[in-house]
Simulated scan of single mutants.
Amino acid sequence: MASRSEGFLIGDDGAVGRLGSTPAGAVETNVAVWSPVLPTAFEKARDATIFTRLGTPHSHKELKAAFEATPNVDQTFCLSVNNVILVFSASRDEHTMHCRTVLQMLRDRSMRADINDCVFNSVKSTDAGIRLEQVGDHKVYLVINEGVLGR
């Protein structure tokens, strides 16, 4: 069930939209609310040492369907906001495996990454254009898609 708060709508999937008078309803923003179902996901994102941004030409709904259909791709190493996937890992070897797994998920569904909206092997999520902000003491993040630097 979606919730509303002063002009904004938070969908069941965490996507945040502005209420508007468009035929499609709410206008998508660059923010998502991430409340991981898996207890270790929060700590893994916070403690990660390497991040990759995989921008795609696909909609948030298409990515959500791909994640739901791929049980080995989960919140312990990736999340999405808008049409972007953030992959995070503790080590370079682990990160290579995680990125391959996510890219294979896209390939298996005839989806692709947009090389112009990708940033590989960043030390911080902000270097990959994604800011993770913890909300209070709760295990909830605001995931803010700031885009690729220099574009």
Rank of each mutant, 00 (worst) to 15 (best):
F8W: 05
L9S: 04
L9V: 15
G11H: 14
G11W: 01
G14C: 11
G14A: 06
G14P: 13
V16S: 10
G17Q: 06
G20M: 01
G20A: 14
S21D: 15
T22L: 10
T22M: 00
A24T: 10
A24W: 11
G25C: 06
G25V: 01
G25T: 02
V27Q: 08
V27A: 06
E28A: 14
T29C: 04
T29E: 06
N30M: 06
A32F: 09
W34V: 10
W34L: 09
S35K: 10
P36K: 01
V37D: 09
L38I: 11
P39Q: 03
T40D: 14
F42W: 12
K44M: 04
K44F: 07
K44V: 00
K44Q: 14
K44Y: 10
A45Q: 09
R46T: 15
R46Q: 12
A48W: 02
T49S: 12
T52K: 01
T52C: 08
R53C: 09
R53D: 09
L54N: 07
L54F: 06
T56W: 03
H58C: 04
S59V: 00
S59M: 05
H60I: 00
H60C: 00
H60R: 15
K61Q: 14
E62Q: 15
L63Q: 04
K64D: 14
K64T: 15
A65T: 11
A66T: 05
E68N: 13
E68I: 03
P71I: 02
N72Y: 07
V73M: 01
V73G: 06
Q75W: 00
Q75M: 02
T76G: 03
F77R: 04
F77L: 02
F77M: 12
F77W: 08
C78A: 12
S80Q: 12
N82S: 13
L86C: 15
F88G: 03
F88T: 05
S89C: 12
R92D: 12
D93S: 09
E94N: 11
H95I: 05
T96L: 07
T96V: 15
M97F: 09
H98Y: 13
H98K: 09
C99F: 02
R100G: 11
R100Y: 08
T101C: 13
V102A: 03
L103K: 13
L103P: 00
M105F: 07
M105H: 08
R107Q: 13
R107E: 13
D108A: 02
M111L: 14
M111S: 05
A113I: 09
D114Y: 04
D117M: 05
C118M: 15
V119L: 09
V119M: 12
F120Q: 08
S122H: 01
K124W: 03
K124S: 14
S125K: 03
S125L: 05
T126C: 10
D127P: 04
A128W: 05
